[in-house]
Design a protein around this nucleic acid. Sequence first.
DNA 1: CCGCCGATAACTGCCTCACC
DNA 2: GGTGAGGCAGTTATCGGCGG
Length: 267
Amino acid sequence: METHLRGDATEATVIAELKRRAIPVSKPVGDNERYDILVETPENRILRVQIKTGRLTDGKIDFHTRSQHTNSAGNSYEKYEGDVDYFFVYTPELETIHVVGEREFDSSMKLRVEEPEQVHHTINWAEEYEFDGRWPPQPDDCNHKMRDQIVDTVAAELKGQELSVARSLNLDECDLLVEPDDGQFQRITVTPGWLRDGCVTFDPDSTDRERIDWFVVYAAEIETCYLVSSEEFDRSISLRVDDDVQNRPQINWAEEYELASRVDHLI
DNA sequence: CCGCCGATAACTGCCTCACC
DNA sequence: GGTGAGGCAGTTATCGGCGG
């Protein structure tokens, strides 16, 4: 089957499956949009979805998400960065639909269906991306990988300071465990932060604070990590980034909480 | 009508990096 | 070194718009 027909067949199959599940689907007028369909979630969120055909090779589903253009200068390639929210990957051989967030990978991804000869922690198991298990998608679903990377970055930063650091096996409790010289484990969780009115804030209420010693707050807008002790605030804390305010003693200046300069607090 | 350009799509191979 | 994931570059096919 030639490529266009195959893409059309995949799109038709996915739309039919969504309709069968009574999920509202809309098609954009014309073909100038980079997403294929708009899907409405039960919470009335509208998601931009690009439908892709998955190829089953060597026990894994392989799919690429890159568009190619030809111009006078030759070929150019463009990713879907920010243009879509999710990819729905339909694999004809398996008749399955997998849901992958746009931020969960760069330009291609492999979903492992069969047991590999060697098990890597980097393997993306297809069953974890199956439609039934991921629909409706949670607002932070597409941030899992980014969060994972942040945890890795924080771990590397701590190791660089010659700290004994390990990934927590119980992710419901914390992300990292640090063992200082006194042997008293410090429990660290990584949490997203956001900029509001010149301050970085986060939501500690979504975490069981009884089990956390330190919060690493990652503010994506400014690509900065902050280290905050659970004892340094009562219900919430704001870290002021914007210095265009009157200097008051109660202001928590963000730069004083930057992870790189506070690692010694964990020792 | 034909050729060019710009867009879509799937497919293939090769490379790098990380892990076992 | 072998394996697996991910990234990158290139190819092929089709379609529509536009201008000569």
